[in-house]
Amino acid sequence: MSKPGVIAIMVRVPVAGQVKTRLIPALGAEGACRLYRAMVDDLLDQAEATGLPIHLFFTGGVQGQLPLSWQQIAAHLSLQQGEDLGARMAHAFATCFQEGERVVLIGSDIPDMGTEILLKAGEALVDQGVVLAPARDGGYCLLGLRRGVDVAGIFCDMPWSTDQVLAMTRQRLRARKHRVCLLPPLRDIDTPEDLLAYQKYPNPTARRVNQVLLELLPPYSLSFRRV
C-alpha cells in the first residue's frame, strides 16, 4: 500500500520586523506581522481540510516561538536547512518523501490558496510527476512532486525572487521530458502593490486576512466587506 500524500509548508516565525518587511512601509512592523500570521492561519485551515498530514518547515527562530495553533495542526515540525531557497526546498522534499509518495510544497503568503487547489495538486500527481502553480510575479507558489521523479536540477543555480523563476523551472523540466500539470496562477502578497491587487479581488475564504486588512487599512480603500 502506498503512503499518503503530504502537504509541506515553508513558514517563518512571526516576529515583528522580521517578516513581510517589504510591507512595513504600508502596514508598520506589527501590522505586517499580524497579516503574515493571519495568512498562515488561513492557509493551515485550508490545508487541514484536505485531511492530509501537514509538515511545517520553519525558519527565523526556534520551534517554541511558533504559535501554539501552528504546532498543534502540524503533524511534523522541522527547521529549514540549506543555504538558499532551492536547497531548503530540496531538503523539505527529501524529508517528506519519507512520509508519503506525493508531496505538495507551498509558501505561506498566498491568501488565494484553498483546499480545492491542494487536493487537485495531489490528485494530479497520481498520473504526472510534477505540478506547478504559478505566482503572478513570475515565480511559483506551489510545487508538487511524486517520489522518484528526478528534478534535482530545478533547485540549483536558480535566480530566486525574480520573475525568471517559473520560466526557467519549466524550461528545465521540459529538457528532462517531465510531464507537468500547470494549475491556474495565484497571487502572493510581498509588496504594497500586491496588497492593493489583493484588495481588488479578495478571497472570501481568507477570513483572517480580510479581517486584519479591514482593521489595518482605511475602510474606503478596501473592496471587500467584513465577513
Rank of each mutant, 00 (worst) to 15 (best):
residue 1 M to P: 14
residue 3 K to T: 14
residue 3 K to I: 12
residue 4 P to I: 07
residue 5 G to C: 08
residue 6 V to Q: 05
residue 7 I to L: 14
residue 7 I to D: 03
residue 8 A to G: 14
residue 9 I to V: 13
residue 11 V to W: 04
residue 11 V to H: 01
residue 12 R to V: 09
residue 12 R to K: 14
residue 15 V to K: 07
residue 21 T to A: 05
residue 27 L to P: 13
residue 27 L to T: 10
residue 28 G to H: 02
residue 32 A to M: 04
residue 33 C to M: 11
residue 34 R to L: 15
residue 37 R to I: 03
residue 40 V to S: 09
residue 41 D to Y: 02
residue 43 L to W: 05
residue 44 L to M: 10
residue 45 D to S: 06
residue 51 G to P: 04
residue 52 L to C: 10
residue 56 L to W: 03
residue 57 F to P: 01
residue 63 Q to G: 03
residue 66 L to S: 03
residue 67 P to F: 00
residue 69 S to G: 04
residue 70 W to T: 03
residue 77 L to Q: 03
residue 82 G to K: 12
residue 82 G to T: 12
residue 82 G to E: 06
residue 87 A to M: 14
residue 93 F to C: 06
residue 95 T to D: 10
residue 99 E to P: 00
residue 100 G to V: 06
residue 101 E to N: 12
residue 103 V to G: 08
residue 103 V to Y: 05
residue 103 V to A: 09
residue 105 L to G: 02
residue 106 I to N: 07
residue 107 G to I: 03
residue 108 S to K: 02
residue 110 I to C: 13
residue 111 P to G: 08
residue 111 P to S: 05
residue 113 M to Q: 10
residue 115 T to L: 04
residue 116 E to V: 03
residue 116 E to Y: 01
residue 117 I to M: 05
residue 119 L to W: 01
residue 125 L to T: 07
residue 126 V to M: 05
residue 127 D to Y: 15
residue 132 L to N: 05
residue 135 A to H: 15
residue 145 L to N: 14
residue 148 G to W: 04
residue 149 V to M: 13
residue 150 D to R: 12
residue 152 A to Q: 13
residue 157 D to E: 15
residue 158 M to A: 10
residue 159 P to W: 10
residue 160 W to P: 06
residue 169 T to R: 08
residue 169 T to S: 14
residue 170 R to M: 14
residue 172 R to W: 12
residue 178 H to V: 09
residue 179 R to P: 12
residue 186 L to G: 03
residue 191 T to I: 09
residue 192 P to C: 11
residue 193 E to F: 09
residue 194 D to P: 06
residue 195 L to C: 13
residue 198 Y to A: 15
residue 201 Y to R: 15
residue 203 N to H: 13
residue 204 P to E: 03
residue 213 L to S: 07
residue 214 L to I: 00
residue 219 P to V: 08
residue 220 Y to A: 08
residue 222 L to E: 07
residue 222 L to I: 11
residue 223 S to W: 06
residue 226 R to K: 05
